[in-house]
Simulated assay, not measured.
Amino acid sequence: MKKTILVVLLLSVFIGYAQKNNGTVYMEHPTIDVVDQFVKASVAGDRSKMGSYLTDDFKAYNGTSNNQNDKGRDKEAFLNNQMVYHDQLDYYAIETYPGSYADAIEYKKDNPDKEVWVQTWNIMKGVQKNTGVKIDAAAHRLYTLTKDNKIKTIIGYDNEGVIDEIRASFADRTNGTIYNHHENINTVRKLMYAMENNDWDKTYSFYDEDVRFLDSSSPTFESVSLEEQKVVDKQILDKFEVTSIDMVGYPDYLHYEMGDARVVQSWWNINLIRKADKKAIILPIHYLMDFNKEGKITSETAYYNAKLLD
């Protein structure tokens, strides 16, 4: 019994020391209203009104920067940056991230000036006017407000990737090479004509064992394995006979610089006879096939009108 009492007392002491209040968190506060009005002025492109919410010694910082000597943007530089968003984005909007709300935090420790931190979670939206790049990105901001409700500091955590894409899109650049003759194109032709001649062992030999198949007519667009695709193929062959396969145009092999992707795109007419009534059907089909370095197909996406097979 004494041991039990001692343990309870020790736990009480530990909990008392482990939890220590350092201020108050508010979900409603005048500083939250100020931040909300500032954001609305930003979206509206009202530079003067934005500036009225900022202190003269205002600073803005990039929360994702690795620069330990970052001195931040001053008031004028920050306002210029905010106007870039307004001026260069169609459909510009800043919305509250679903399920979130702003917090105002007034710390006790090391806060002699009674400053309040406001943290927000948002989604920034828009379409860059020149490049057509769409922004639909989460953003997190920390605001420091003075006791007279002026914004002294903003630390932003934003998606830099979409901004990099906008910058890159102002200049033309290549992204690899397109071939109209290549070994991977040869592979696709051999595969299709093995299919035409009902040589399914050879057809399947061109695929990597971990290949995934996607069907544009699938309502979920979920991929299936090679073994699952064999079942699908058998179901089709039980109902239809392949009489011939005709290439439409010519295949392209695209070797992308970004991501080192290897893709053959091709167009075909598959001529079928429906076994039930001997009706001839032409099935136009477009394939996208991804290849690995070994020349095996790792992914196949088929685009066609499934209604033709009803």
Rank of each mutant, 00 (worst) to 15 (best):
I185S: 02
V25P: 00
T131S: 04
P30S: 07
N66E: 05
D136I: 05
A306H: 11
K129T: 08
S48Q: 15
I245L: 01
N159M: 02
T301Y: 04
A41Y: 10
S223A: 15
T96F: 01
P112M: 12
A280V: 13
L214A: 06
R173P: 02
T144R: 15
D158F: 15
Q68K: 12
Y61I: 11
D113W: 06
D33Q: 13
V43D: 02
L9A: 13
A77N: 06
P30H: 07
Y256N: 06
I135F: 11
N292R: 05
L142Y: 10
R189W: 04
S266T: 15
Y17I: 12
E241I: 12
G132I: 08
S169H: 08
L6G: 00
Y204N: 09
L226W: 03
Y107F: 14
S169Q: 09
H182R: 06
N122S: 14
D110S: 15
M289W: 06
D215K: 07
E28L: 07
W117R: 10
E227H: 02
T243W: 04
H255F: 09
I5E: 07
V35T: 14
Q37L: 07
Y303E: 10
D46V: 13
K234G: 01
D260K: 14
E160Y: 08
E300S: 14
F213G: 03
H29S: 04
Y91V: 02
T174I: 05
Q88Y: 08
S52C: 10
E300D: 09
S205H: 02
R189M: 12
T120Y: 04
I285L: 09
D74K: 03
N80M: 02
D246N: 14
I135P: 00
A276Y: 11
Q82R: 04
Y204L: 09
V264E: 02
W121Y: 15
Y204P: 10
V13S: 01
T146Y: 05
D56W: 03
D148T: 03
A18I: 02
R141T: 10
D136T: 09
R274S: 04
I155F: 00
G16S: 10
L272S: 08
M258T: 15
E222W: 00
Q68F: 07
M1Q: 11
V84T: 12
H286G: 05
L10H: 01
L254M: 08
V162A: 07
M258Y: 10
I5A: 10
V7C: 02
E196G: 06
V35P: 08
I123S: 00
K307M: 09
Y179F: 15
A302H: 03
K275A: 06
N175G: 08
D277Q: 07
R189Y: 12
S216P: 04
Y53P: 00
S244E: 05
Y53R: 06
V231W: 00
L145G: 03
L142P: 00
K2L: 11
Y179A: 04
I178A: 08
A137F: 03
G16P: 07
V34H: 05
V263A: 01
T64W: 04
M247L: 15
T64C: 01
G45F: 09
K108S: 14
S299I: 02
A276G: 03
Y250V: 06
M27L: 15
I270S: 00
Y26R: 05
G23C: 09
T55G: 00
E76D: 13
T96A: 08
K147G: 01
D277I: 06
V162T: 13
K59V: 13
V13M: 09
V7F: 12
W200R: 09
Y85I: 00
K40V: 03
E28A: 09
